[in-house]
Amino acid sequence: MLKLHLLFCCLAVASAVVMLLVRHPMKMALALVATMLNLAIVYGLSGAHVLAIGQVLIYVGAVMIFMIYVVMLLDIKDSSLVRPLSRYLFAAVVVLLLIAGISYHQLANTVTTQTLQAITPVGDMLSFRQFSEHFLEEYWLHFELSSVLLLVTTVAAITVLNFKKGTESL
């Protein structure tokens, strides 16, 4: 379980690095999707299924899809994008290795397998019922307020659309 956990942590970091390195917006967005999916798996392995589903449902299923949609609509065919990786790749790799080296040096002595196991709760920690009860007891006001905010945004978007339509006909 711990090995799986580490594997998906590494995959998440790796796809985050890919996101920083590639130049094309579409590939960037996809790398971000991969990061989020890996993070969701890490949450799931840690027993926080609610968080994992939230990550996939909200970030991949809604936010990232809109980003990909926008990139698709813009259909960028800039000549500068022919080069797949960033010009500063060499510098980036050097800095990455430096950071990795420093963190390893700092963490190697303090983090042992036992401490890693201690931070990896396995099994069902948080059921949906528990989560919902806690959430709605503590944050019901925030929840309701955010829904009002969303409604306001929707109305604003529709107003802007109608406004544009009006000017076009003039």
């Binding site: 299924h49 589903i53 449902l57 991949v60 990232m64 899809i65």
Partner: peptide, 25 residues
């Protein structure tokens, strides 16, 4: 056997859209 089955199905089905968009693009 997960306790949030209904939500997980909805979450996973959302991913298909990415493939469709990619294919066309």
């Amino acid at each position: 056997p997960l306790d949030g089955g209904a939500l997980i199905i909805l979450a996973i089905s959302g991913i298909c859209i990415i493939g469709v968009v990619l294919a066309g693009w």
